[in-house]
Design a protein around this nucleic acid. Structure first.
Lengths: 205, 205
DNA sequence: ACCTGAACACCGTTCAAGT
DNA sequence: ACCTGAACACCGTTCAAGT
């Protein structure tokens, strides 16, 4: 088959196809991308290097949508809240993607920039230098975990048996999944900020 | 081949083989289990139902090692700390397993029992009923995330570029990976408990 | 009841060959 | 430079056939 005068393929097309598949089915594959774009599987390798490469492009893709409304005289606490929220929202729009992103080194520039902003805000808070990374990790765990919770398995815990009365009650009290995840998010942000602020020079609580 | 008088296979053998593979390589597969046990791949299905089933057996397996030294008159805070620690330790001994466990509903009884204990301790703390599940989720995110961090990619963030001075400084200040993860864990536990205690009837801070 | 071999429907990646 | 088809080395699962 001759080379067409305008390329059949582009990284954008590949990434969009992969993202659509993930949103729809929870995963993507080379055969399905190729089929959807009407090209051969092997031709994908002219644009991308590997499956991992696509995943990293997907990470950059969902963070590209992020609106950054920066307020110059917001407190470090407001900044941290804003960053956690926008980080969380990026994942929340593509929950199926979260598991794919979690086990892979972050290289996407937009994401690194967000961590840089987070580090700067925490430094402003007066947190001791040696706790900076700990606080970032804590926030990271939280954001990823809370995004993961809104993902695939509707029942994270199978409490069908009778042996867990307190857990069962707690789950019922928490309402339907969507509501529960949202409330857990708000609760978590407050708790994290309170916990971090405690280590700060100028305590706010 | 005739049926041997003593069975060649058992779920224990399958689970141990899978766990050893995960610890060694980060994953397991049916062909490799079969090869290691000297049986055919299809014979595995006489003992287990699916790949997911094996993963759930692995979850139960690593929690079976858990020692539960219960102190009857410990405070709710001590109980929560003890549970987070032991939960974390189970993962820490098999970090490669964490990614496999994260995207799957929890059915292992030992794990559900731990969540039940956690729920009970938090209820004792005086936390409002509707916040119980939020607190459990928060702790869960933290324990999983912190276990995940000790897993595969040595560099979670690729800060090879010059554009992230604060992040870079924070990372250097935090020391080598193992130390950083440990400090982040201790910092996180303290922060979480402080944050949760804030919502409690009898504030402790 | 327990094991086998063959078959099926999937994967990601490489590479010589075309234009 | 860009695309193809074939090949390779993997997957999980099913099923008829053996004893």
């Amino acid at each position: 088959m001759p080379r067409p005068r305008s390329a059949l393929l582009s990284v954008e097309l590949i990434v969009e196809s992969a993202l659509a598949q993930v949103d729809r089915t929870g995963n993507f594959s080379f055969p399905r991308i190729a089929a959807e774009l009407g090209v051969s599987q092997s031709s994908l390798y002219n644009r991308i290097e590997s499956r991992e490469h696509i995943i990293e492009l997907l990470r950059a893709r969902i963070f590209a949508d992020r609106r950054v409304m920066q307020d110059d005289d917001e407190s470090w606490e407001q900044t941290v809240r804003r960053l956690i929220r926008s980080y969380h929202d990026c994942f929340a729009q593509h929950p199926n993607l979260v598991p794919l992103l979690m086990s892979q080194t972050v290289r996407a520039e937009a994401v690194l920039q967000m961590y840089e902003d987070l580090a700067a805000a925490l430094e402003r808070s007066g947190l001791p230098q040696q706790d900076l990374m700990s606080a970032i990790s804590l926030i990271d765990y939280f954001a990823l975990g809370s995004a993961l919770e809104s993902t695939a398995p509707d029942e994270v815990w199978d409490v069908s048996t009778e042996h867990h009365p307190t857990l069962r009650r707690a789950l019922q009290e928490a309402g339907p999944t969507g509501e529960r995840v949202n409330r857990a998010f708000d609760f978590g942000v407050d708790a994290l900020l309170a916990g971090i602020a405690m280590r700060t020079k100028h305590r706010i609580y």
